[in-house]
Simulated assay, not measured.
Amino acid sequence: MHEPAAHRDELGAGAVLVTGAASGIGLATATRCHEQGWAVGLLDRDEERLGAALATLGAAGAPPVAAEAADVTDAAGVQVAVDALAGRLGRLDAVVNAAGIGGYTGDVVATTPERWERTIAVDLTGVYLVSRAAVPHLRAAGGGRIVHVSSQFGLVGAAGSPAYVAAKSGVIGLTRAMAVDHAAEGILVTCVCPGPIDTPMLRASHADGSVAARAESERTAHRSLLGGPGRPEDVAGTVLFLLGPDAAHLTGAVLAVDGGWTAG
């Protein structure tokens, strides 16, 4: 058997790359990491919000923060951005893949090929592309952590969302496959599955007046055991645990951070 490489996390915070870092769970995660002493690389396609996030974290002082605008579906752009952030931070010890899109598309007949492809591209292929670009940097650092953000709908079905459910289920499968492939290198790969979280994406879904949106809202009303949506910081706290020394024996793990949504 191979012995895992030494983990940077055992020595304290290092440098983390967060995708979808301009808002929601990604921004909350980047903020919590920075507060805990991580150097943070921000990646998002929304340049305006990304600039605001960079300014806010940068104003908080050390450790360093850097940002690169990129669409996670653009393989060449992702490679350039990840390499640039690793270079500016001096190393890369961890990655949090939080970028994603939602939206109801209807059943498989109503879901157009264009919407199917875009959802899969962002929510699943984007995770693969960022991981592909980042793993060589984690190898160079002697190991590290990767945390993928899936969804409760990676664990169960949803009305009118075949593309989203397929993509988020795929993220869970990718987590397990990567855990197997990279354990011997000291790269631990885990996944969080948030339930409803008060983010711009959730608010947009609540504003969706489609038949599918109404059906899912009625089907899942009051589903959370803890009542109402969670906060981005609730997910960020779990991610921070997965990046830290207390999670040194966790890989391939899939954690529901859903207020008991999938338990009932």
Score class of each variant (00 low, 15 high):
D181T: 13
F153C: 02
A177R: 06
G157Y: 05
F153H: 10
P196G: 10
G160N: 00
R145M: 12
V127A: 15
A166Q: 02
V171K: 00
G170M: 00
R145L: 11
D181G: 06
A134I: 06
Y164G: 10
P200C: 13
G160V: 00
G143T: 03
Y164Q: 09
P194I: 03
G173T: 03
A163R: 05
R139A: 14
A179F: 00
V180R: 15
L188I: 07
S169Y: 03
E185I: 09
P200R: 09
T190P: 00
L138S: 14
A166L: 03
L174Y: 12
P200Q: 11
L129Q: 15
L124I: 09
V149G: 01
G173S: 04
A177Q: 11
V171R: 00
D198E: 15
V130S: 03
G143L: 05
A133I: 10
V147F: 07
F153E: 01
K168I: 04
T125E: 08
P162F: 01
D198S: 09
T125L: 07
S169I: 02
A167S: 09
D198F: 08
L124W: 04
R145F: 10
L174R: 05
P194R: 00
A133R: 05
S151N: 07
G186P: 07
Y128G: 09
A133Q: 06
G157V: 07
P196Q: 10
A134C: 07
G126E: 10
G195M: 06
G154W: 08
I146V: 15
V171P: 02
L155G: 13
Y164N: 06
G143P: 09
G195F: 07
V149M: 00
G126P: 10
V130H: 09
D198H: 05
G186T: 06
A134P: 04
V165C: 15
V156H: 00
G144S: 10
V192K: 01
I172L: 02
T175V: 01
V165F: 02
L155C: 12
S150M: 04
L124M: 04
L155E: 11
